[in-house]
Amino acid sequence: MAKEFWRWKEYNWKSETIDWKDGNTVSCGIDVGSVSSQAVILVDGELYAYSSMRTGSDSPMSATNAMNWALEDTGMTQDNVHYVVGTGYGRVNVPFANKTITEIACHARGANLMYGNTVRTILDMGGQDCKAIRCDEKGKVTNFLMNDKCAAGTGRGMEVFADLLSIPIEDVGELSFQVDEEPPPVSSTCVVFAKTEATGLLREGWPKNKVIAAYCSAMSHRVVTLLQRIGVESDFVITGGIGKNVGIVRRLSQELGFETLKTNYDSQIAGALGAALFGRALAEKARN
């Protein structure tokens, strides 16, 4: 089988300092995306454990797997979790969810915790969609748009290019800066046409790094035009898988004239984290 350059790694994490048995409310958020799924477990609103995995062809199974992997070595079972919220594209396929909430609301709520309550604009670039969200100091959504119709500006578009150029997806960002000067962006928006264009550039003798730089630049520009519809206000953050690609993040910040806030949290768990926060609030609301 040919090497698959688009493949990224799965992982899990758990807190060394929190004992879940001391908590009043254990909540869980599960974000079943089209490409990856995350599970986040909170103990009284504090991050306790999480996992990130590829979504399989069976969504309910993916939700269960993500949950079980987050619970690994915690001594906790599903029965110890008070409230589960499902979110993301496959949210209706979380069999054990108490409630489902749209990922737009969850991303805003998650970013509010991850980056602080000064966050006003969130860009989430997922595997098969791109979301632009404005929110207030409570993490409540004030304006949003989502684009899941077109692969341009999504992780999938970047995967297509990583594969075309045989560059491991994790290396795309760094390599895109290893060029003598920034090339003009790929002119086609459509990924299919951009691929044809890139093949032409390679034939002209462009090195791979220059081609990927031209694509990163095109993708950043496209996302900027998407953001203009809702308006960008600082503080600005980028979540989702593409948030880890410096080739996009740095070019975007430059074009927008805004630095993106950094966080110690993993940017990919924003949706699941928000879902878990709503889970905690809903569990406590039900109790009162």
Binding site: V141, T142, F144, L145, K149, C150
Partner: peptide
């Protein structure tokens, strides 16, 4: 809140 439904594509 302003909710934008739809998309942007090449066209």
């Amino acid at each position: 809140m302003i909710a934008n439904f739809g998309y942007k594509d090449g066209s």
